[in-house]
Design a protein around this nucleic acid. Structure first.
Length: 474
RNA sequence: UCCCCGUUAGCUCAGCGGCAGAGCACUCGGCUGUUAACUGAGGUGUCAGUGGUUCGAAUCCACUACGGGGAGCCA
C-alpha cells in the first residue's frame, strides 16, 4: 500500500532532507567500491529515483537481492545529488526486498531490446522505459479525450458491446453465442437456428458505436462514445487490431464543416495536452523511436490542417507524375500510396479530405446536391494513414430509404434507424478516432501491437491465427 | 487473404556443405559517486520442428510452426 505522496514522481517534489519511503522495481544497478547505485522506478514517471547505498549501510543478504527486476521498498533521506543525471537522490537507510529477480533468467537487460522480443514478454515489457512511456501517454491521451468533450458539454455514452444489430456495416463481426457448437440446432432449411440462441437471434461484438451514438445525439444533442470495438477482419498489418478502442462523437445540428473543425480542434487539443503533461516520455520517443515526433507534434498542435476535397486530391495525385501502383482517376478510392503522398510529400501534415464519390462510401453519409458525392471526411496523418473517418449523416428520410434500397440492404433491419428520420430528424454529423492509431502518431511507435495492453497468453489474440491444416477436413 | 524476408547462446547477430562463433547480458574479481558506468577473467547451444539430398547439413530441398515487412480492408 502506497501512502499519499508515495509515488516516485511525488518524491521528486519534496524538499531535500525529507525522510521518504520509495517503492518500485529495479531498472539498473551500478556498483563501485564504496557505494552502490540503484535506479528505482514505480511507473509513476519516466525519471528513475536514484538510490544511493554507502557500503556497509545495509545487510549484505538484502543488498545482494536488489538486482535488476527486483521489487523493493527503500527508506531513507532525500538528498541533493552531486551526480549529473538528477537533482535529488535517496540515501538509503533501510531496504526490504518484496520480490527478488534472478539475474541469470530475468529477461530484461539494461541494453535495448527489439520490439519483437518485448512483445513476447508482454507481462514484463511494461517495466521497460519504452512501454512505461507508451502506457503513461495512453493514459494521458484517454484523459484528454474525456476532458475535451466534457468541457464542451458532450454526454458520454457507453455503447453496447454485445449487439444483435446486423445493420452495422463497418466490418466482419465476432459472433457471440451460447449454442453448443458440436451440436448446432438447425431450422427446417438447414440454417443455424438462432431463435434458440441466448438472445433469440444472431449476436456479435460491436464493430462501431456510431448507430447508437446517432440515437443519443438525436436526444442529447452532443454525445461521444469511448470504448472497445471488435473487427473480425483478416487484417494482418502494423495498423490493425481485432480489438481496439474507438472514440465516436456525434453532434446534432452539425454539418460537415462543423464536423471537420471539431475534429481538427479535438486532435490539436489532445496533442497539446500530451505535450504539456508527458514531456519526459515524449523526449524518450523522440530520442529512441522517432526523432521527428516532437517537432511534428508541436507543429501540428500549432498549425491549421490542410483541407482538400476528394476531387482536388485526385487532381493533385494526377499531376504528381508518379507511376502509381493503383492508377488514379476520379471515382477510385484513395490507396495507402496516395494517402502517404498527400500527407508526407504534398502537405507534410494532417490532411482532411472531404466529399468522396457516393459509390465508395457508406449508405448513411449525406448526399451532396451534385448527387455524385457524399459529405464524408477522412483525416489522414503522415505515416499512419487514415486516423479519423467521419461524415455528415443523411437526415432526410426519403433519401436515406432510397440509398438503402439502391444498395440492396435489408430495409427491415434499419426500421429504427429510419424512424430517427421519420420523427424529429435533425442534421447531424460525427466521426471515429482509433485510440491506438492516435497513440502511434503521438509516440512514433511503428507497430500497433506495441501500444495496447496485451497479455502473454493472449499474444496472438490481436493477430489472426493462421488456419489450422485440420480445418480443411472439418 | 496475397506477395516477400526471417528463425543459430538470455538478447542482437555473423557463419551459408567439412571442429558452433562475436558483442552485450550473466558469474567471479578490480575501481572513492556511477548515469545503458568503466575494467580483467570465465561458463554459456535441441543451429525452430519433421522429413529428404549428401561420405558429411546450422548451411541445399520440401513441408509445418512461429515472427516481421508490404498489399488489400479499415480506425
Amino acid at each position: 500500500m502506497i501512502e499519499k505522496g508515495g509515488y516516485i514522481r511525488d518524491i521528486f517534489q519534496k524538499p531535500v532532507g525529507t525522510s521518504v519511503t520509495a517503492y518500485g522495481w529495479v531498472k539498473t544497478r551500478r556498483d563501485s567500491k564504496g557505494v552502490h547505485f540503484i535506479q528505482l522506478n514505480d511507473g509513476s514517471c519516466f525519471q528513475d529515483l536514484q538510490i544511493v547505498i554507502d557500503a556497509g549501510t545495509l545487510p549484505e543478504d538484502v543488498l545482494s537481492q536488489a538486482t535488476t527486476g527486483a521489487c523493493l521498498r527503500v527508506g531513507g533521506e532525500l538528498v541533493e545529488s552531486p551526480g549529473a543525471g538528477q537533482s535529488v537522490e535517496l540515501k538509503a537507510r533501510e531496504m526490504h526486498v518484496y520480490g527478488p529477480a534472478d539475474p541469470q533468467t530475468y529477461p530484461l537487460q539494461k541494453k535495448g531490446h527489439t520490439m519483437e522480443f518485448l512483445r513476447e514478454i508482454a507481462h514484463l515489457r511494461t517495466r521497460s522505459n519504452t512501454f512505461g512511456a507508451v502506457f503513461r501517454v495512453r493514459n494521458a491521451l484517454s484523459f484528454a479525450i474525456h476532458k475535451f468533450f466534457q468541457e464542451r458539454g458532450f454526454l458520454y455514452l457507453n455503447a453496447p458491446i454485445i449487439t444483435t444489430s446486423d445493420a452495422e456495416g463497418a466490418g466482419a463481426m465476432f459472433g457471440v453465442t451460447t449454442l453448443d457448437l458440436m451440436n448446432l440446432p438447425r431450422t427446417e432449411t438447414g440454417e443455424i437456428d438462432y431463435d434458440r440462441d441466448f438472445f433469440g437471434k444472431k449476436a456479435g461484438l460491436t464493430v462501431s458505436g456510431q448507430l447508437e451514438a446517432e440515437i443519443f445525439a438525436l436526444a442529447f444533442s452532443n454525445v461521444y462514445t469511448f470504448g472497445p470495438t471488435f473487427r473480425a477482419e483478416n487484417s494482418n498489418t502494423p495498423r490493425h487490431l481485432a480489438e481496439f478502442w474507438m472514440i465516436e462523437p456525434e453532434m446534432a445540428f452539425y454539418d460537415l464543416e462543423d464536423n471537420r473543425k471539431l475534429a481538427e480542434e479535438f486532435l490539436k487539443y489532445i496533442i497539446a495536452y500530451v505535450l504539456d503533461t508527458c514531456a519526459a516520455d515524449l523526449e524518450l520517443f523522440n530520442k529512441r523511436i522517432d526523432n521527428t515526433v516532437l517537432s511534428t507534434l508541436v507543429h501540428v498542435a500549432g498549425s491549421d490542417f490542410e483541407h482538400v476535397t476528394y476531387t482536388e486530391a485526385i487532381a493533385i495525385l494526377e499531376k504528381a507524375g508518379r507511376a502509381w501502383e493503383f492508377p488514379v482517376h476520379w471515382g477510385v478510392d484513395l490507396q495507402s500510396e496516395h494517402e502517404r503522398y498527400l500527407t508526407e510529400e504534398t502537405f507534410k501534415k494532417p490532411v482532411v479530405v472531404t466529399d468522396y464519390p457516393r459509390e465508395i462510401k457508406a449508405f448513411y453519409m449525406r448526399l451532396n446536391d451534385d448527387e455524385k458525392t457524399v459529405r464524408a471526411m477522412d483525416v489522414l496523418a503522415p505515416r499512419i494513414g487514415e486516423i479519423i473517418g467521419g461524415s455528415q449523416r443523411e437526415e432526410r428520410y426519403d433519401v436515406l430509404l432510397n440509398k438503402i434500397r439502391a444498395q440492396g440492404l435489408p430495409e427491415e433491419a434499419y426500421w429504427w434507424y429510419l424512424e430517427l428520420r421519420k420523427y424529429g430528424t435533425a442534421p447531424h454529423a460525427g466521426f471515429g478516432l482509433g485510440l491506438e492509431r492516435m497513440l502511434m502518431y503521438v509516440t512514433g511507435m511503428k507497430n500497433i501491437r506495441d501500444v495496447i495492453p496485451s497479455h502473454p497468453w493472449l499474444r496472438r489474440v490481436l493477430n489472426r491465427r493462421k488456419p489450422h491444416p485440420m480445418r480443411a477436413l472439418l
